[in-house]
Design a binder for these strands. Structure first.
Lengths: 294, 294
DNA sequence: TCAAAAGTGTTCGTTTTACACCCATGT
DNA sequence: ACATGGGTGTAAAACGAACACTTTTGA
C-alpha cells in the first residue's frame, strides 16, 4: 500500500481566520508566528484576515497545511484528516472546494496534484493550535491597514475587484486589457509561500469573497458566527470589508443591510464600550448551519 | 503499474454544444442519438444546448465520457486524452474545471473520485463523432422550447436563477428557505444520467452560465465562435438565453449590448434571409483566444 | 466644549424594466 | 395589407453614490 506507484493526490487547506489588533496582541505570545513580522511590528493593521501556515519540512519556507490522500478515503474526509493530523484542529465548519492545482514546480519524480479546500475558523479555535514544532502561524492576507496602504500606493480601490496581499484583480474597465486581469504575488515579485501555495490562497480568498456578495447570510455559509450574539453594524462592515478587500461607504452599507429581507435583525441593546455615540446592536436572523453553496 | 492499489481518479467531461432545430434534423442521421427522443419527436425545441453522452459499458444507462487518470500525467492532459480516446475528439478549446465529485454511488470496492471538466465545442465538430459502438449522442440540457414549457408549468422564469433540464435554482427571494435552493433531477424524481453525472452536468452548466454573466466576450472565454463571422443580435440573444436558462427582453438585451465597451461591433452588412425587417449584422471585436477565467 | 463614531435626509445620476410605437421586408 | 421580426422613444422605478447634517456618548 505504497503511495509511490501512482500520481499523488495532495490535499492543501487554506484556513482563514479574522482577528483584531487587540486579539493578536493579547493572544499570541510568540510574535514570530505572525507574518510578515515587520507589518505587525511597525504599523497598525486594524482587523486582519489571516491564513494559517506552517514551516515546510526542514526548511525556512512557509506552506499551507497539507497531506496526501490515503487509500479508500473520501476526499472530504481526507481534508479534515489532514487538518486534524497536521495541525490538530478538529474543524466543525464545512470545508469548501477551491479547485485543483496541477503544480509543475514540485520537484520530485512524481506528478502531484493538489486538491485544495478552504474554510473560515474562529480565531478562538485557531490560536490554540499555533506554534509547536511545525511553527504553525498566521500569514496576513488582508487587513484594514493593508487596504489603506494599498490605496495610498495604488490609487482608489474602486479600480480593483478586491485587493489582498495575495493578489488582486483589476476591474475590467480599468484593466490594461479590458479583462479581469489579475496580479498575484509572483507577478509582483514578492512570493510569500512556497510551491504554488500563493495561488491557492488567492483563489481561496476569491471564493471567500463570494460569501459576502449576495444578500444571503455569509456566516450561515461559512458555518461560523465570528461576531458573537450581538454586534455593531460597523463591526459587520469592517469584517466584510476585510474579507472582500473592498470598502464601502458607511451610510450605503447601513442602508443596504437594513432592508426588507436582511439577514440581520436589530436588538434593543446598545453598546457604549467605544467612543462616540452608542451603537445599536444587531443579531443574525438565523443560526449558522450546514449549507451547500454553488 | 496497476490502478488497483490506490483510490482511482476518474476524469469526467461535460462537452456542451449548441444546435438549432435545423442542424439537428439535417445533420443527425440516427435520431436515437438525440435524447430525450420524445422531446425531439413531438415538440419544437428551437435552439438547443446539449451535452455529449455515451452508453455505459454493457448497459442501457447513459454517462458522460470519462476515464481514469494515468500515472505521471498532468490532469489537464488526462482530460484531453479521455476525450481523444473515448470519443475521438481532439479538442481545440480550453477545458475548464467543474469541481470534484466524491461519488458514493459507484459500487466497486474502490472509492472513486471524479475530477470533472467542461468545455463548449462547435456542433460541426461534435456531430462527426456521434454514433459508434458507444452510441455517442447528445442529451438535451436546455432549449428555447424547454424554457417555454418550463415557464408554462412553473410560472415566471424570474423566480429562478436559471433553469435547465438538469436542474435549477430558486432566486433567494422566491425560495422556500430564502436561500439559493436548488432542485436537481434526482430531487425531481427524474434522473437522467447514471451515477452522479446529473450533478456534474448541473454544476458544469452553472459554470457555463458565468461565461455570459459579465460584460466580457463569452466566446473569448469559451474559445469558440459558434455564431460565425457575422450574426444577428437576436442570434446572440437566443444563444445566450439557452446557455443561461434565462430570458431577457429584446430591447433591453439590445441596449445592453450596444454600449460603450461592448464585445461586439456593428458591420455594414444586413441579413434578409428570414422574415421581417432585415437585421444588422454584428461581429466579435476580438478573435477567440486562450483566456484564463477565475 | 470637543472629538469620535452612529445614524438620517436629501439629492443626483445611472441602470433596470416596462410598454408602446415605428420600420422594412416577403408574401 | 398584413404578418413578422428589427429597432427606437420615453418614462417610471429602483439603485448607487455622494454629501451634509444631526445625535449621543466619553473625555
Amino acid at each position: 500500500m505504497t503511495n509511490d506507484i501512482f500520481p499523488r493526490i495532495a490535499i492543501d487547506v487554506v484556513l482563514f481566520t479574522v482577528a483584531s489588533e487587540a486579539d493578536l496582541q493579547t493572544m499570541i505570545w510568540d510574535e514570530t508566528l505572525l507574518r510578515p513580522a515587520e507589518d505587525y511590528r511597525s504599523q497598525s493593521n486594524g482587523l486582519s484576515l489571516l491564513a494559517l501556515t506552517m514551516s515546510a519540512a526542514g526548511s525556512e519556507a512557509r506552506v499551507l497545511p497539507g497531506g496526501f490522500m490515503a487509500p479508500n478515503e473520501r476526499i472530504g474526509e481526507a481534508a479534515k484528516r489532514v487538518l486534524r493530523e497536521r495541525i490538530g484542529l478538529d474543524l466543525k465548519v464545512p470545508l469548501r472546494d477551491i479547485g485543483t492545482f496541477d503544480d509543475p514546480s514540485r520537484d520530485d519524480s512524481h506528478r502531484t496534484i493538489s486538491f485544495s479546500y478552504w474554510a473560515m475558523a474562529d480565531f478562538e479555535d485557531v490560536r490554540k493550535i499555533l506554534g509547536g514544532k511545525d511553527r504553525v502561524g498566521l500569514e496576513l492576507v488582508n487587513s484594514t491597514g493593508f487596504m489603506t496602504r494599498f490605496e495610498a500606493a495604488n490609487g482608489s480601490l474602486e479600480k480593483f475587484d478586491g485587493v489582498s496581499r495575495f493578489g488582486y484583480r483589476f476591474m475590467p474597465k480599468f484593466s490594461p486589457s479590458k479583462r479581469h486581469e489579475k496580479r498575484l504575488p509572483k507577478d509582483l515579485g514578492g512570493k510569500i509561500l512556497a510551491l504554488d501555495h500563493d495561488d491557492i490562497v488567492f483563489y481561496a480568498w476569491r471564493k471567500l469573497r463570494h460569501a459576502f456578495s449576495s444578500k444571503l447570510d455569509p456566516f450561515n455559509y461559512l458555518g461560523i458566527n465570528p461576531l458573537g450574539e450581538a454586534f455593531r453594524l460597523s463591526d459587520l462592515q469592517e469584517f466584510q470589508e476585510v474579507c472582500r478587500g473592498e470598502v464601502v461607504q458607511r451610510d450605503l452599507f447601513r442602508r443596504n443591510m437594513i432592508n426588507e429581507d436582511s439577514f440581520i435583525a436589530q436588538t434593543n441593546m446598545r453598546d457604549s464600550s467605544r467612543p462616540g455615540k452608542p451603537a445599536n446592536l444587531y443579531t443574525l436572523q438565523s443560526p449558522p448551519s450546514e449549507n451547500t453553496g454553488e
